[in-house]
């Protein structure tokens, strides 16, 4: 292994590749949980992971899934090839939130321990059931219907930096909720307001409380829109200008995405 003698002012200085959280590459799901243990089912396809991550398949390597909770790490070694296996995580308190990281680690003598590719740390949805690479999509958009917005259609307020509250004009909502323009007009702008607010109110996104409203919005942006804002791949700039530029990119990605019937929100409208 190369000896590191100076501080390298670049996060990813070994050209580590990224493993995307796609169900065709791997799936992690919680099968059951007791007060002491968690049963996980892991399915993976190493050939696809290598191909998608552009890692040379001739390199000797290990594929591992690290499970982190309360400062502990339990490592699951995933055999060569692909399969679906169940694993039991022991000594895991029932209130601990599990984080996962899938890694391809070099096992060549010269580079042993170097990460060839990895996911960012990710979490599963709470509760039982399939969790495809932790795509947390369910039910984080909870607007409050309001009768006191006057002529405004919506508003975002911030009781705390990690707690955006979205208010929607009740009359407008009841009249418009099933119309295509509702989503096309509102959602991108609400996303802009919320993500902009989170990025400008929270210097360090890593300390945002898990399962807070801000955490759920960030999970959505990270996992569905694929902008890594926290963890290994995050290269989030500190300046307001840079963060506002990033917000624009996120909103564009949201607007460009095919959401329903293979259409963007605008295509659905027109």
């Amino acid at each position: 292994m190369a000896v590191r003698t100076t501080f390298v002012d670049k996060w990813n200085y070994t050209n580590r590749k990224r493993i995307k959280q796609k169900p065709e590459l791997f799936i992690v799901e919680q099968v059951s949980r007791t007060p002491n243990t968690v049963n996980l089912r892991v399915q993976w396809d190493q050939a696809e992971i290598l191909k998608e991550s552009r890692v040379d398949p001739s390199i000797k390597r290990l594929l591992v899934l690290d499970v982190l909770f309360l400062g502990n790490t339990q490592r699951l070694e995933l055999p060569e090839g692909g399969a679906a296996e169940e694993f039991v995580i022991e000594e895991c308190p029932d209130n601990a939130i599990l984080e996962f990281r899938l890694k391809l680690v070099s096992n060549e003598e010269e580079t042993r321990g170097v990460l060839l590719a990895a996911t960012s740390p990710f979490k599963l949805k709470t509760g039982l059931g399939p969790n495809e690479g932790s795509f947390v999509t369910s039910g984080f958009f909870h607007p409050e219907l309001s009768d006191s917005l006057g002529s405004r259609i919506w508003a975002v307020t911030w009781p705390a930096p990690d707690a955006p509250v979205i208010s929607l004009n009740r009359s407008y909502f009841e009249k418009s909720k099933d119309k295509p323009y509702f989503a096309a007009h509102l959602f991108p702008e609400i996303l802009r307001a919320v993500i902009g607010g989170i990025l400008l109110r929270n210097d360090d996104l890593e300390v945002i409380e898990e399962q807070s409203a801000a955490d759920e919005w960030l999970n959505f942006v990270e996992q569905i829109l694929e902008f890594p804002l926290r963890g290994d791949d995050a290269e989030l700039e500190a300046g307001n200008e840079e963060r506002l530029e990033l917000v624009e990119k996120i909103v564009s990605a949201f607007a460009d995405r095919k959401w329903r019937n293979g259409n963007t929100l605008l295509e659905e409208l027109i």
Partner: peptide, 27 residues
Amino acid sequence: KIAKQLQMNYDLQSMDKNEIYALLPPE
């Protein structure tokens, strides 16, 4: 700072103390 950067590039979990020392900058 340093551990955050190292764990992006290395599998720290599988490394022993001396391998970690070998990665640390002169500070």
